[in-house]
């Protein structure tokens, strides 16, 4: 089975792009499935179901969704094999900008939209910087020049990625993307033993572990203080 990890900020167009890409994959005779990871709530599974796409949903609750993702990705992969799909796509919203679901030797895609501002590419961490393919959506809303400026900012932070423009509503560009998903090089038997592209910090500080009280005496672990006295 082939496996692709798709990540990106909330509302960047991940579900729309995945749906259009699966449409193109179906037309070329490939069966696709989706595992969707989110924090508290998602309706995306219904959108996939409505198109007859096998979908598995996982909610991480209070955990960082990417941590939850790694803890469950191997099982999800096995689930996909049982569904008999040719290609399994994971969708996860990058919420903490520090974690990333991308796995070595597994096709890694980051979806980001033109409306997010030209300084966004440099703010997004490994989810963007370690992706093989960066999809830029919502190009229909801005001019060509603005698309180019945005794409060049993406290319500066991840010069090795293939950068593509896909319209999540009309699906323009999705066919082209599907040819990369269908590439045989993405074929894998198991995820066991594979490794993440970038380490995820475990609980960084006491607040990650559930602390609610404010004040220095409650803070332990990896705490960084801003310098409020100077500059």
């Amino acid at each position: 089975m082939r496996f692709v990890t798709v990540s990106g900020p909330p509302s960047s167009g991940k579900t729309s792009v995945i749906l259009k890409t699966i449409e193109a994959l179906t037309q070329s005779g490939m069966k696709s499935g989706v595992v969707k990871f989110d924090c508290l709530y998602t309706d995306d599974d219904k959108l996939y179901e409505a198109k007859g796409i096998p979908v598995k949903k996982g909610l991480s609750g209070a955990l960082c969704p990417d941590h939850y993702f790694v803890s469950n990705v191997s099982e999800s992969f096995e689930w996909g094999k049982k569904q008999g799909v040719d290609i399994l796509i994971s969708e996860s919203a990058g919420l903490c900008n520090r974690c990333s679901p991308h796995i070595k030797e597994i096709l890694a895609v980051c979806v980001i939209d033109n409306l997010s501002g030209i300084n966004t590419p440099k703010k997004i961490g490994p989810m963007l910087k370690s992706a093989d393919i960066v999809i830029i959506t919502k190009g229909d809303i801005v001019s060509q020049a603005e698309r180019e400026v945005f794409a060049s900012r993406v290319a500066a932070v991840n010069p090795k990625a293939s950068i593509m423009h896909v319209n999540g509503i009309t699906g323009q560009g999705a066919f082209e993307l599907s040819t990369l998903f269908a590439d045989e090089e993405t074929e894998t038997d198991t995820l066991n033993g594979k490794s993440l592209r970038f380490s995820m910090p475990s609980a960084l500080c006491s607040y990650c572990l559930g602390e609610k009280r404010i004040g220095a005496e409650y803070q332990m672990g990896n705490v960084r203080k801003m310098d409020v006295d100077n500059g």
Binding site: N114, I118, D140, I141, V142, S143, Q144, E146
Partner: peptide, 10 residues
């Protein structure tokens, strides 16, 4: 490409 949309958000 010169596309239909000429809007700016920047």
């Amino acid at each position: 490409q010169l596309s239909q949309n000429m809007n700016f958000v920047m």
